[in-house]
Amino acid sequence: MIDLTDIKKIYATGDIQVVALAGVDLHVGAGEFVSIMGPSGSGKSTMMNILGCLDTPTAGQYFLDGTDVSKASGNQLAIIRNQKIGFVFQGFNLLPRTTALENVELPLLYAGLGAKERKERALLALESVGLAKRVHHRPKELSGGQQQRVAIARALVTRPAIILADEPTGNLDSRSSEEVMAIFQRVHEDGNTILIVTHEPDIAEYTRRIVRFRDGHIEGDERVQNPRKAMPQVEEEKGAVS
């Protein structure tokens, strides 16, 4: 599914060169659930952005689902981002002043789907993250955990090949974190490929494989012996208005 060969990312700020990724080789197969850990500044986000086709590597090769992404044009990258990748950010990155439903519909809009199908699929995706009763709320009317679930619904709605999440629980309390991880576990059980970046060992234990970063290198790569099961059900919605 994902094949990285000697990926390098070097930032040149003025005279100083910052090596964010110093040659990363990584293979992630279809259906894997991987967490990426490592100290701050070790290059985790840099790699996720490259995996998500938001950024391009300075050197190296990246094959996603069989296509050489390093050779794709800006337009092709946009199509890949739209159809193959679902990206979840630490800071949610929802459009403000736009309802949950419209936010989730957005990737389908750029995919060229009709209004009716967009709405149906977005509603399904929101339902699957337990937000059926919050579809007409704007981001600022939602809690952090709910916003992140909207963002996850937006990532899932195009049924992408891989889901990438950069510290999806970084801004959430432990209860919301568990809800989010429960969703990821369920999505994984449905056969999706998921990579998440996290600082918290607890969170990593919900996944099946941990890749450790240090100074732009992969330092360790291990299976999780006894993956924890996140509480499957989502908080009861009280007094919600749809």
Binding site: G74, I79, R81, Q83, N93, L95, Y110, T158
Partner: peptide, 16 residues
């Protein structure tokens, strides 16, 4: 700018 970034991240082309 941020809105543009979000739109692009989820698949908006330059032309969109």
């Amino acid at each position: 700018t941020r809105e543009i970034g979000i739109r692009k991240a989820i698949g908006a082309k330059g032309r969109d």
